[in-house]
Amino acid sequence: MFGTARSATSTYAKVAMETGVAAANPHKLIVMLFDGAKTALANAMQQMKNGEVKAKGQAISHAITIIDGGLRASLDKTTGGEIATSLDALYEYMSNRLLMANITNDPAILEEVDGLLSQLREAWEAIGAPITTKAAPAVSVQDNISPRVNSFVRA
């Protein structure tokens, strides 16, 4: 009659992700792609440990899809210049390493790619962090209409 707790959790996670995507700015979407790839790799690692060959392959394929179809596809090599070209090569390297991890069943390769994704995610988060500036102190200004002092105007 009622769905399982697992299906309810899965549905909640899907709705939360869709809501996050709809409300996200382009910078946040890239962070979400990094998070999705890292989640797929964690899943692949677990499936590899469990000996679940099919599920491991699906999780690795999902990570490759995110890297190639999301992160790599979002690069603008014309505007991004050398940085975009270098990232493109790095994403290609990661995808190739993940294919090798799937073939050889090597968890160390999954950890290597996860580490690269973590470093890129941290760098991406750092460049997107809001810049905080000190607010200008309130100053007293006299308006031209009345002799009273107005202290709500900021310089």
Rank of each mutant, 00 (worst) to 15 (best):
A44H: 13
A44G: 13
M45Q: 09
M45W: 01
Q46V: 02
Q46L: 03
Q47R: 08
Q47T: 01
M48E: 01
K49C: 00
K49G: 00
N50F: 01
N50T: 03
G51V: 03
E52M: 00
V53T: 09
K54W: 03
K56T: 03
K56N: 11
K56V: 01
G57F: 12
G57T: 11
G57Y: 11
G57S: 09
Q58N: 10
I60G: 02
I60F: 03
I60T: 04
S61M: 07
S61Q: 13
S61W: 04
H62Q: 15
I64G: 02
T65F: 14
T65L: 15
T65D: 15
T65M: 15
I66T: 02
I67T: 02
I67D: 00
I67A: 02
I67H: 03
I67P: 04
D68F: 02
G69F: 05
G70K: 06
G70V: 03
L71N: 04
L71G: 01
L71R: 06
A73F: 09
S74Y: 08
S74F: 06
L75W: 05
D76T: 13
K77T: 14
T78V: 15
T78S: 15
T79S: 10
G80P: 12
G80Q: 10
G81Q: 09
E82T: 13
E82D: 13
E82L: 13
I83Y: 05
I83K: 11
I83N: 06
A84S: 07
A84C: 00
T85H: 07
T85V: 13
S86Y: 04
L87W: 01
A89H: 11
Y91G: 05
E92Y: 10
M94C: 12
S95F: 02
S95K: 06
N96G: 14
N96Y: 04
N96S: 10
N96Q: 14
R97V: 04
R97Y: 01
R97T: 09
L99E: 07
L99R: 05
M100L: 12
M100Y: 02
A101K: 05
A101P: 07
N102T: 03
I103L: 13
T104R: 14
T104L: 12
N105M: 05
D106T: 01
D106H: 01
P107W: 01
P107S: 05
P107I: 00
I109N: 04
I109H: 04
I109Q: 05
L110W: 08
L110E: 09
E111R: 09
E111I: 12
E111C: 09
E111Q: 11
E111K: 14
E112L: 15
E112A: 13
V113E: 08
V113W: 08
D114P: 06
G115S: 11
L116E: 09
L116F: 15
L116Q: 14
L117F: 10
L117R: 07
S118R: 12
Q119E: 09
L120W: 02
L120R: 01
R121T: 07
R121W: 06
R121I: 01
A123C: 07
W124V: 00
W124F: 12
E125H: 03
E125K: 11
E125A: 12
E125R: 05
A126T: 08
A126H: 03
I127Q: 13
G128F: 03
P130C: 00
P130N: 02
I131F: 08
I131G: 07
I131N: 08
I131D: 12
I131Q: 14
T132N: 09
T133Q: 11
T133Y: 04
K134R: 09
A135I: 13
P137W: 02
